[in-house]
Design a protein around this nucleic acid. Structure first.
Lengths: 152, 152
DNA sequence: CATTTCCCTAGTAATCCGATAGGAAAACCA
DNA sequence: TGGTTTTCCTATCGGATTACTAGGGAAATG
């Protein structure tokens, strides 16, 4: 299960905007420098966020980007969907569109369960949570287990 | 979060072997036909599973592949790791190797929590569970929610 | 009007997906 | 022993996707 560079960059850019506050506009170049994201690549991602209604932009000398809505009303899942498509996919298709045969049939409810679990976290955590370093308790308790930090 | 074709195919092939039982050998061509997987692509995947110690192979007329261990001792997570690398990665690197700056810093514990949740499911469910269509209760209850089956 | 910044289109290099091809090694059968 | 089957190894190849890069046009500011 791979989280793409697009998705990671989109969330980090949105977090910079959330941290800056609703009033201030940040330039793409400033976000790129702050997060170490290739500038032109980021411009394309910010365009997607704008078309998706998550950020608003302004050109010119005092231009830049800012969030279109309060940071505590934007879930991480939303940012990923707008920038990168479906939250969870198998071979590029969403679980409900899959069809399995024979002994692989119960694989469908399994992927559904995995997706539900991912949604539960990324749909609950908002930009405000992360930018303020105040993750919800259920997320914190998952991350508190030292075993969660080890590679198998 | 994308599950690759390799991972999906590897699990389905392993499920065919689990359903066939420990005694019987299945030919790559038979698995490919049963699951609708490109035959030569599958051969490569089965080679990885063999080198990873999950299946054993035999050449010749009565040859084929079978599981190296009982199906109830092989978790889905294991199959995915052997065939496709780390279970969860961000931009191709595992969460513990990530480093974030500024307001994106708490993104690391967030990915860790997501991974822990995915692990909990895919590390608990075995080939035997799926092949016998008897998923553990906690997985079933996640998949029982009708909302888990809808796309956002 | 000149600078800044967003915005759009194209292009590129690397990887992934899936298919194909040729053949060596090993096991079976007659 | 010889012939068949099947794994096993290498190699290639085109199309799609990913992660970028380049260049320039459009709008806002001073």
């Amino acid at each position: 299960m791979r989280i793409s560079a697009r998705a990671d960059y989109a969330v980090r850019a949105a977090l910079e905007l959330a941290a800056a506050g609703d009033e201030v506009s940040l330039k793409a170049e400033a976000i790129a420098a702050a997060q170490g994201i290739p500038h032109k690549f980021l411009e394309g991602i910010l365009g997607d966020l704008r078309r998706g209604g998550l950020v608003v932009s302004q050109r010119g000398g005092k231009g830049g980007y800012r969030l279109a809505r309060p940071a505590d009303s934007i879930a991480i899942a939303e940012v990923i969907r707008v920038a990168d498509g479906p939250l969870v996919s198998v071979r590029g298709v969403r679980p409900p569109e899959l069809s399995y045969r024979g002994p692989a049939e119960p694989l469908l409810p399994l992927w559904i369960a995995v997706r539900a679990n991912v949604r539960k976290i990324l749909g609950e955590v908002t930009l405000a949570h992360v930018a303020a370093a105040r993750l919800p308790d259920d997320v914190l308790s998952l991350a508190a287990d030292p075993e969660a930090w080890t590679n198998p």
